Computed example of a mutant assay.
Amino acid sequence: MADVPVEEYLCTRIRRAEQALIGHHEAVLRGYGLTMPQYTVLLALSREEAMSGAQLARACGVTQQSMASVLTGLQNKGLLDRRPSPVHAKVLIATLTDAGHDILDRAYQEVIVLERALTDRFTPAEHRQFCDLLDRATATLVEQTPERGGRTQ
């Protein structure tokens, strides 16, 4: 690997792709007054209908503390409601408001344009192969990630 420039490393290429993707989404979402974590929460709630903060944190890959501030921001904007769970009174369940559904629908229509553009860039066979390769790369990244306090083999 010493002879290969860092720009050619797979991890560098994955990071550049991730940065481009996030940059695109952030630019689109900024027009709706949303951050990427807020959009991700709205999207998750549109699919699950009602979720706790802990469930949303796991679904969005953030800590519960981070999720609490995201949920507060969305609630302050009137995009979601939180009510006590019928099962656990101390747990708040988040649901989208009509305004939340509306802003998500409008933002999604712009975000999905990139998905279509990426899909159109490849033939159907290339698209399937690219997805398979990305899935394999993701699996390797997960496998190689040390456990908290542990070591990789």
Rank of each mutant, 00 (worst) to 15 (best):
R15Q: 14
G78L: 08
A44H: 11
D81I: 03
T145L: 14
V62D: 02
S66G: 00
Q38K: 03
D135F: 07
V91M: 15
S69V: 01
Q55N: 05
M51I: 05
G100S: 02
Q75E: 15
T95Q: 11
I103Y: 10
S46Q: 08
I14P: 04
E126M: 06
V70K: 01
L80P: 02
L92Y: 15
E147R: 06
L45W: 06
S66E: 09
A125P: 00
V111A: 05
H101F: 02
L104A: 01
Q65L: 03
A50D: 03
H24P: 00
A59P: 01
L42K: 05
G33E: 07
S85Q: 13
P146K: 07
R151Q: 14
R30N: 07
E143M: 11
Q109S: 13
C11W: 14
I93H: 13
I93V: 15
K77E: 09
Y32D: 08
E7S: 14
P124G: 08
Q129R: 11
L21M: 13
T40S: 14
A50V: 09
R83E: 15
A54E: 12
V4C: 07
Y108S: 10
Y32T: 04
E110K: 10
R16A: 15
G78E: 10
A139W: 11
E115P: 00
R121I: 04
H25M: 08
V91K: 15
S85Y: 13
Q109F: 04
Y9D: 13
P86T: 03
A107G: 04
M67E: 02
G61N: 05
E8D: 15
A27F: 01
Y39G: 05
Q153T: 00
A2R: 12
R47Q: 13
A89L: 11
D105M: 10
Q75R: 14
C11I: 13
L134P: 00
L71M: 11
A27R: 11
G23N: 03
R83D: 14
Y39M: 11
S69F: 08
L45D: 05
S85C: 14
A68N: 07
L56H: 03
A59L: 02
A117K: 13
I22K: 13
R148L: 08
L10R: 12
H101S: 01
T140Q: 14
R16I: 05
P37H: 07
D3K: 12
H24T: 05
F122K: 10
A94S: 14
E48P: 00
T12I: 02
S46Y: 04
A68G: 04
L92E: 15
A2C: 04
